[in-house]
Nucleic acid binder design. Structure first.
Lengths: 106, 106
DNA sequence: TTGACATGCAGGAAAATACCTGCCTATAAA
DNA sequence: TTTATAGGCAGGTATTTTCCTGCATGTCAA
């Protein structure tokens, strides 16, 4: 998985909105997604392209339509690699902070 | 919490590297963080500023030094609000995909 | 107080991003 | 076969982002 592509894909509110829509109803066409997006079809296409490159969205062609499906796997991997790690850090946080502040007084 | 700031903060590999360093050793000064970052101090400052605005890093001044501490809370909130939601979606994914493909044949 | 050191602040250049318009291709339906 | 519809592709522009240089401020130690 490419961490960087996933994070960059999630950095844009429009792309997160697209993931939201697909979360509500999976397998939508480009046209359907455009209806609620307040930007040109071409821009939506570009955003979906980045989501697809980040492997967050998979597509299937059906005739002249293109269906878009969410892929939650990379998000879960990001969680496993990042959030979990920081959870460990959380335990030591207050301790570290307290220690540093005390060192100040000495 | 400001979702957008958190996601944007995580979008840059340099900032993720900074979080990594703080995860390994919490409470480092700006100077210490610069030693391993291969960019100017001013750039590191800017990155740390964005992390702080996203509430991913908290700082404490100690004399002429500035100590940086990780704050994992917003990351956990992002997980709760996003990854969990997509986990639900995962369950329906294969079902949806299968259904759409079958509709194609009819 | 003076010199050294840690950090802050102010632009400015270069690259990346997000949008757009205009046109082309492919499929479905009349 | 013609027409309408769904989507693809090629630029071009405005904004944002990233990184830099140069200089200012604040703190410690001699």
């Amino acid at each position: 998985m490419d961490d960087d592509k996933v994070f960059k894909a999630l950095a844009d509110p429009g792309r997160r909105a697209l993931l939201d829509r697909l979360c509500a109803r999976n397998g939508q066409t480009l046209g359907q997604l455009c209806e609620t997006m307040d930007m040109t079809r071409q821009s939506v296409t570009q955003h979906l392209g980045l989501l697809e490159q980040a492997n967050l969205v998979s597509t299937v062609r059906r005739g002249r339509e293109k269906l878009h499906f969410i892929n939650p796997v990379p998000l879960y991997e990001v969680y496993a690699r990042w959030i979990g790690k920081f959870e460990e850090a959380r335990l030591g946080l207050l301790h570290d902070l307290k220690q540093e502040l005390e060192r100040k007084d000495n």
